[in-house]
């Protein structure tokens, strides 16, 4: 709406602004990329959180500058906030049943569940039973809900 009243001057500043936003977006993408290839990935939760924050920052930049929401009136909140909250709600509500399903697996279910796989080099056939390394995780909670 601002640009309606603005002249050539504003146009130039706008273009400059967009290029600045562009640079910021590229920088943020680079940050995500660097984090993913850095030792920070060892503590995955933290790295994921930082990457999601970076994504949110990028989304904020795109929405407010490229989609012009910075210059719109209050209706922007009416349209964007409910949708964002609803989508968050959906994901949060899916977590207990689907996102944590592995915690409720029964012993029977574990027989078919995927699990991290690695060759146990120390597991030759003779001393297999001697090692404590369990290929089949046994759920201690004895949950049979599945």
């Amino acid at each position: 709406m601002v640009s309606e009243a603005s002249g050539q001057q504003d146009h130039k500043t706008n273009t400059k602004l967009f290029l600045k936003v562009f640079a910021a977006l590229c920088f943020l993408t680079a940050i995500s990329f660097v984090i993913a290839n850095s030792p920070l990935m060892k503590s995955q939760g933290l790295a994921w959180a930082v990457m999601m924050l970076v994504s949110c920052a990028k989304a904020f930049l795109v929405i407010s500058f490229f989609m012009h929401l910075k210059w719109e009136r209050t209706w922007k909140y009416v349209l964007t906030i409910p949708a964002s909250l609803m989508s968050l709600l959906l994901v949060v509500a899916l977590i207990p049943d689907v996102g944590r399903r592995a915690e409720n697996y029964s012993d029977q279910r574990w027989l078919h569940a995927t699990e991290p796989s690695e060759v146990k080099a120390d597991l030759s056939r003779e001393d297999a039973s001697a090692t404590g390394d369990e290929p089949v995780p046994v759920d201690s909670s004895e949950s049979d809900s599945h």
């Binding site: 959906l90 509500a93 899916l94 049943d97 689907v98 399903r101 995927t114």
Partner: peptide, 14 residues
């Protein structure tokens, strides 16, 4: 495989 039948129920009833 790899999915969860309850996921459909949640999406459907949502």
């Amino acid at each position: 495989g790899g999915g969860q039948p309850l996921l459909w129920q949640h999406l459907f009833w949502f």
